[in-house]
Amino acid sequence: MIEVNDLHKHFGSKVAVDGVSFKVKKGEVLGFLGPNGAGKSTTMRMVTGYLPSTSGQILIDGVELEDNEVTAKSKIGYLPESAPLYSDMTVEGFLRFAAELRGIPNSGLTDAVNKAIETCFLEKVRHQSIETLSKGFRHRTCLAQSIIHDPEILILDEPTDGLDPNQKHEVRALIKRMGRDKAIIFSTHILEEVEAACTRAIIIDRGSVIADGTPDELKAKAQNAGAVLLRASGLAGTGIQQELEKLTEAKKVIVVESGDDYIEARVVPAKGKGNELSPAVFKLCKDKGLEIQELRVEQGRLDELFREITKSDSED
């Protein structure tokens, strides 16, 4: 549905997007991750046809965006970053305006508006002026305009920004539900959101894609993925630590807490030994007669991976 090849965007001498490529198929929800200023919004703005690209190719459902802007745009629903709205309109008036611009015939306008209002829980504020809406309602009104024509492709720039936890949950569920028969790209800073709603995620930093995969694949790339967390007693902490460090399956041992007769430590697996580490730790404890209070394999965490690979940027 969406195919982006080697996309570049320069603002003067500043390179905002530097060779980004990705594909999103129908039924996929692609999460866009990256620090502020990494080029997420710029990429989305190019895909929606708002910004012209410096070079590269964007195909929307097989149609080249550059050659056929209006056709390509008609297939996309877009929620811009700050959820802009005309404050002088009512919610219903605004949605009707969006529906008309989207080319919905007059006979279908009321139905389309009603459906969008229902999907985004806007019934309560339907006749209210947008100026008087709370941030959550404003956001959902803008989200409603993006889905009013039931587009095949949805591009959402930080769709949960400024919402309270309940609303965030609702929007995530909505994205997940719509993702079954649409191609969706959404950007976010909230990593749990990626795990909750995305089928795939890419991390963008300084204009380039630096990681691409399913949330699980990405988590597996985190340094701590596959680490074994052990809490055991029966020997002095330092003694246990030394034993753990001797394991060939272990790369290093990070002590969380240690005492006269116990230790809590995270054992990071050596490369390629992820599956063998926990049996080895278990065997060691058994051989040394230690009492295991806790032994579990840690999943990698997206925020760890995010910090690891985008760290240099924030240190600039």
Partner: peptide
């Protein structure tokens, strides 16, 4: 100022 230009110009219109 409102940012609605981004909205209007990503609609399918010239």
């Amino acid at each position: 100022r409102l940012g609605t230009m981004e909205l209007v110009l990503t609609m399918p219109l010239a």
